Amino acid sequence: MLTLKTAVALAAACLAGAAGAATSNAFANGGFEANGPGGWVAAGWLDAGTGAPATRSADAHSGQYSLLLSVPNGIGASIAIQDALGHGGMPALTAANVGDTPWLSFWAKGDASTTGDAFVTVRYMGANGVIGTALSQTFQQQLSTSNWKQISFQAAAIPAGATTVFMEIGTRVGPILDNRPNAVLVDDLNFSLTTAPVPEPSTYALMLGGLAAVGAVARRRRA
């Protein structure tokens, strides 16, 4: 016999299943596949205007393109940037994201040269500008010239008031020594935000069934 306690537990289980978390990419076009407007590196991505433009390469981890960051003349920087909301057209961060500690992951290969580095910086932005640094890391030590390697960093918690994330990813170099090039490829970039998924139709059916069972038992108890 179905008791009120059992029916409530059934309904709670259905609701818990519906509230499970999923993840989404905070940044647009993390695979650099989509073309951007004139002068853009790719859809959502701009060059930082350092004198050594970020471009795209047909040497990709997946798909057709990757991001190429290179200072071939030996002194300077090559940087791609994205404001996820302003440049990428991604949804704004909300109070539901506060406290989340996203992971940044991407695939990379290449060589920053003996006098250079490869770096990524992510900042949380609010209505009045920067309100916190999510992460600031170098990754040239993890690069291979022949194989794509996945690189991951965990970001700081998203603060209250954050509406978007801003990324700079690039390479910097002094004079090139030992004839080692400065060229870094990046692909399949993902900054994972926790999001609440839309429940599947079957989940809705289970939820309604559980709630109906609660109602039926309650009516029997009143009778």
Rank of each mutant, 00 (worst) to 15 (best):
V122D: 07
A213F: 04
A223G: 15
Q142G: 08
F191L: 15
Q141R: 12
A54I: 09
N25K: 05
K5P: 08
Q82G: 01
S202Q: 10
I131D: 04
D117Q: 10
T164Q: 15
Q154K: 08
A155M: 11
D188K: 08
I169W: 02
W148S: 04
G88I: 04
T50L: 13
T114L: 15
A77D: 11
Y65M: 07
L206Y: 08
D100T: 09
F27Q: 01
G49Q: 01
S192I: 08
A155W: 07
A26Q: 04
Q150C: 06
V130F: 03
A162M: 09
T203V: 15
D178G: 08
E200G: 07
V71N: 00
W107Q: 05
Y204F: 15
V198L: 14
I75D: 14
V41H: 04
I79N: 00
A134I: 03
A223I: 08
A108S: 15
L4G: 12
S62C: 04
G49R: 01
A12N: 08
Q64K: 11
S192F: 03
L193F: 12
R123G: 02
G209P: 03
R172W: 14
H61P: 02
G210V: 05
N97S: 09
D178C: 09
D47M: 03
A127Y: 05
G39Y: 00
G31C: 03
L143M: 03
A11I: 05
F166C: 01
S57G: 02
G170F: 09
A34D: 13
D47I: 01
V98C: 11
G38R: 10
S146I: 12
G17E: 13
G161N: 06
G116T: 07
A127R: 09
Y65W: 12
G36M: 01
I158M: 03
A80H: 01
G63R: 00
W148E: 05
G31H: 00
S152A: 14
L193Q: 06
K149V: 14
S57Q: 12
N25R: 00
P72T: 07
V122W: 07
A160I: 06
P181Q: 03
R222N: 11
S78M: 07
L104T: 01
G126A: 10
I169P: 06
G170H: 04
